[in-house]
Design a binder for these strands. Structure first.
Length: 81
DNA sequence: GTTGAGCGTT
């Protein structure tokens, strides 16, 4: 409720999309506190999913309620646990 | 070298 909230899960972006690209894209919405793109633990290959943390909760509402397309792929957003 | 739903690391 007021501890780890601020973590937003985003999945669906292209495998060619990098953490830096996401950081740049999300910075346009507000102050990005944390952006991390997860990859496979065995082959180190990008899985196309990651987490993001914004400085203000209003950013989550805006991003989650809007559709985003990065690198030509539709990114699906959800609230992190 | 490939694929396309999902919940991670300081």
């Amino acid at each position: 409720m007021d501890s780890d909230q601020g973590k937003l899960l985003f999945v669906g972006f292209s495998w060619a999309t990098n953490e830096e690209k996401l950081n740049n894209y999300f910075q346009g919405y507000g102050e990005v506190v944390q952006v991390v793109a997860m990859r496979d633990k065995m082959s180190r290959k990008p899985r196309g999913f990651g987490f993001i943390v914004f400085s203000d909760p209003d950013n989550f509402d805006m991003v989650v309620h809007d559709e985003h397309v990065i690198d030509g792929r539709t990114v699906r957003f959800a609230f992190g646990v």
